[in-house]
Computed example of a mutant assay.
Amino acid sequence: MFLILLIVIALVMWALQLMRQAIDRREFSLMLAGFLVSSAAAALVAVYMLMNSYMGYLGYSGQQAIAPDWSDESLGWLTELNQPTSLDGSAQTKFWQEPLLSTAQ
């Protein structure tokens, strides 16, 4: 950040020097060059701000992809979904409970 700030300050100072010389010599080309240099400084700041936000987004999404939250509460729906029910609607958990718990761990 500090390096980019120094580069932007140097570009703005150079642009002001070019514009001052353009006024002294009454040359349009130097004024145009000063405007282009100042535009480059503004574009550099804009790109820095956009990339800073994007890198923050990538860091956050990458952290979520690497370490998702696999707590027991998040796998609770899996144990309920895989339990077979009998004809009267009650869950049969005797023979399904052991294999399901062993695969969840």
Rank of each mutant, 00 (worst) to 15 (best):
58 L>F: 09
1 M>V: 13
4 I>G: 07
3 L>T: 15
7 I>H: 03
14 W>M: 01
1 M>R: 10
67 A>Y: 13
23 I>H: 09
28 F>P: 08
23 I>P: 00
96 W>M: 06
99 P>Q: 06
7 I>S: 06
79 T>F: 07
59 G>P: 04
89 G>W: 00
13 M>P: 02
11 L>Y: 01
26 R>E: 15
54 Y>H: 14
13 M>V: 15
70 W>I: 10
84 P>M: 05
85 T>Y: 04
82 N>W: 10
39 S>N: 08
76 G>E: 11
76 G>W: 01
97 Q>H: 07
56 G>R: 06
45 V>K: 05
31 M>Q: 11
71 S>G: 04
78 L>H: 06
27 E>S: 11
64 Q>Y: 12
76 G>Y: 01
55 M>I: 15
69 D>L: 02
44 L>V: 15
39 S>H: 04
79 T>H: 05
57 Y>C: 07
57 Y>M: 11
15 A>C: 03
24 D>M: 03
4 I>S: 11
1 M>T: 12
60 Y>L: 06
68 P>I: 00
92 Q>H: 02
46 A>Q: 10
94 K>D: 09
37 V>T: 15
90 S>Q: 08
99 P>D: 09
60 Y>D: 15
53 S>C: 06
27 E>F: 02
103 T>H: 08
94 K>E: 11
43 A>L: 10
99 P>W: 03
23 I>N: 11
81 L>E: 14
104 A>T: 15
95 F>R: 09
52 N>Y: 08
48 Y>R: 04
85 T>S: 07
2 F>N: 14
68 P>M: 01
54 Y>L: 11
61 S>W: 10
79 T>N: 06
103 T>F: 05
67 A>V: 15
34 G>E: 02
45 V>E: 13
7 I>V: 14
44 L>C: 08
72 D>N: 08
6 L>K: 12
16 L>G: 08
5 L>W: 12
93 T>K: 00
38 S>L: 07
29 S>F: 08
11 L>G: 00
74 S>H: 11
49 M>A: 12
15 A>E: 01
71 S>E: 02
20 R>Q: 10
44 L>S: 09
78 L>S: 07
103 T>N: 09
76 G>M: 02
51 M>G: 07
80 E>N: 13
68 P>W: 03
14 W>H: 04
104 A>Q: 13
97 Q>G: 03
20 R>C: 04
30 L>D: 06
58 L>P: 03
83 Q>G: 03
25 R>L: 02
71 S>T: 14
47 V>H: 11
44 L>F: 10
2 F>M: 07
6 L>W: 09
64 Q>V: 14
7 I>G: 02
97 Q>R: 05
82 N>D: 11
87 L>F: 11
12 V>Y: 00
55 M>H: 14
92 Q>D: 15
64 Q>C: 04
30 L>P: 01
8 V>Y: 02
49 M>V: 15
38 S>Y: 03
